Amino acid sequence: MSTNGEYLRFTPGELARALEDPEWALDFASDVQDQEDEETAPAEARHFTTHQTWNLLGFLLKRLAFPVDIVFGEELIPEADDWGYEPPRYLTAYRVRLAADKLSRMTYGELIHGVDHKELAAAEVYSQIWDSPTSLEWARDLFIPLTEFFQAAASADHAMVIWLDRLPTARTIHHKS
């Protein structure tokens, strides 16, 4: 079982509906994930995953006092069930624009500057692979696409729903029983 960071772009109307009807939001997220090709470019995608790098990215961004919580989201969707580990959270379109702007001004080298892999191990950053200095390169291939995903969402004036999903082997959203 692994834990993946998941992101879904919502139009303002879709977000309003999600806040009123969290069950609809869960079905919508599941439908988008099922229909979207994993090869879709981040700038064109409605859904994006940081796979297991979510905690590393969160740790690194927190060190830099990043102004938006792009790993867990900021606002809880009221009355939503767990979509994995906990209920989903969202970022307003304004917060998505702020995050996109800040991400676009940052390189991955700046993000990891001064971080020692031993610091990650001591902080117990998921997924516990911090046995060498090169392990910090693990999230590089997802940082640029995540930035592109946020920039596209910001350009479209989209909000974003964010959640951590437990995945046994394939991409799924856990529906309530």
Rank of each mutant, 00 (worst) to 15 (best):
T50P: 06
T50H: 06
H51M: 15
H51T: 15
H51S: 15
H51Q: 12
H51E: 15
Q52Y: 09
Q52D: 14
Q52F: 10
Q52C: 11
T53K: 04
T53Q: 09
T53R: 06
W54T: 04
N55R: 11
N55I: 03
N55M: 12
N55A: 15
N55V: 07
L56N: 03
L56Y: 07
L57I: 14
L57Y: 11
F59T: 04
L61K: 00
L61H: 01
L61I: 03
K62Y: 12
K62F: 12
K62V: 12
K62P: 05
K62W: 12
R63I: 12
R63W: 10
R63P: 04
R63S: 08
R63F: 10
L64N: 04
L64C: 05
L64T: 06
A65M: 05
A65R: 06
F66G: 13
F66W: 10
V68E: 02
V68I: 15
V68T: 09
D69W: 03
D69K: 04
D69L: 05
D69A: 06
V71R: 08
V71D: 09
F72T: 09
G73K: 01
E74T: 14
E74V: 08
E74L: 07
E74I: 06
E74G: 11
E74R: 09
E74A: 10
E75M: 04
E75G: 04
L76H: 11
L76I: 11
L76A: 14
L76F: 08
L76G: 07
I77N: 00
I77F: 01
E79L: 09
E79T: 09
E79Y: 06
A80F: 02
A80W: 01
A80G: 05
A80H: 02
A80T: 06
D81E: 13
D81A: 13
D81Q: 07
D81I: 06
D82E: 12
D82N: 07
D82M: 05
D82Q: 08
W83P: 01
W83R: 00
G84Y: 09
G84W: 07
Y85P: 04
Y85T: 11
E86W: 13
E86K: 11
E86Q: 14
E86N: 11
P87E: 14
P88C: 08
P88E: 05
R89K: 15
R89E: 02
Y90P: 01
L91Q: 00
L91M: 02
T92N: 00
T92C: 01
T92V: 00
T92Y: 00
T92K: 02
A93I: 01
Y94E: 12
Y94F: 07
R95F: 03
R95M: 06
R95K: 09
R95C: 06
R95G: 05
R95I: 03
